[in-house]
């Protein structure tokens, strides 16, 4: 097997006296599509920040390409969960994408021609040409999402992190973004790690799943992870996995009220969709 793009070993993060992540272990191979699944507050964003070097782990470590990170963010593209773009910002979609090409460098741009070509290519990869000349702050949420993905892709990362890109998108747009990311993953050989609190939209494209609950993680293929025994161990109480016409529902099994409360959100989310 080739060297993993990302290896997370026994990662623990403690914030304000709370163990947000605890002994998280998984690895991602080059070009793999991985879903990071967990309900609100499970620690998805914290895990991303730890991978990026923005959050110091209290234990364990993060390896990129088998080695500790050299420079912060080197080789990783990142689309954050929350971002706010001022509608009056004099910046078109393509300008923001261009910043992805060389924003880390100081001084004036030197490779303008190559940058222009790279911008066109990145915009095409996310089907964003139609709105690339509009002020980025005036685009819809889904369109901004695409521009940010293009911004991340233009630096040719080996790993793309997308934090809940499907939140706030309607079903059709969500499916579009999923297939777009899957396409990018296959065509450009970029490993994709995408977080979501709903598993079903990702099931058809995921090579691997990292399931987060209570700060702990289970990882493997979806067949290996989406099983009653694995998830029950993760949640610390009994959980049932129900297959309804190809859609997975994860529900709290018969138990006391406390158990039910722990799983409530998962149940809610799975039932809301489709």
């Amino acid at each position: 097997m080739s060297e993993a793009v990302l290896t997370v070993e026994g990662l623990g993060v403690r914030i304000a006296g709370r163990q947000v992540l605890d002994g998280v272990d998984f690895a991602i191979a080059p070009g793999e599509f991985t879903g990071l699944i967990g309900s609100n507050g499970a620690g998805k964003t914290t895990l991303f920040r730890a991978i990026l070097g923005l959050q110091r782990p209290t234990s364990g470590r993060v390896l990129l390409g088998g080695r500790p990170r050299s420079r912060r963010g080197a080789g990783i593209g990142y689309v954050p969960q929350k971002f706010l773009l001022d509608p009056d910002l004099p910046l078109r979609g393509r300008d923001l994408v261009a910043l992805g090409f060389d924003a880390g460098r100081l001084g004036p741009s030197t490779r303008l021609r190559r940058r222009r070509a790279a911008v066109e290519e990145a915009l095409a990869a996310v089907d964003a040409e139609a709105f690339a000349d509009t002020r980025v702050g005036r685009l819809s949420g889904g369109e901004q999402q695409r521009i940010l993905i293009a911004h991340a892709l233009i630096s040719r990362p080996r790993l793309l992190l997308a934090d809940e890109p499907l939140a706030n998108l309607d079903l059709r747009s969500a499916q579009e973004v999923v297939s777009l990311l899957a396409r990018v993953c296959r065509e450009q050989g970029v490993a994709v790690l995408i977080s979501a609190h709903e598993i079903n939209p990702l099931l058809p494209v995921m090579d691997r799943i990292v399931y987060l609950a209570h700060g702990r993680a289970a990882s493997g293929t979806s067949e290996e992870v989406i099983r009653a025994d694995v998830l029950s161990r993760l949640y610390g109480h009994h959980v049932d996995v129900i297959d309804v016409h190809g859609r997975v529902l994860i529900v709290a099994g018969a138990g006391d009220d406390a158990d039910l409360a722990g799983c409530e959100e998962t149940v809610e989310h799975t039932e809301v969709i489709q």
Partner: peptide
């Protein structure tokens, strides 16, 4: 410019 528009993305790139 990047840090002004998208501070978090800039941070992730080491800015």
């Amino acid at each position: 410019m990047l840090s002004s528009a998208l501070p978090e993305v800039g941070e992730a790139r080491g800015i």
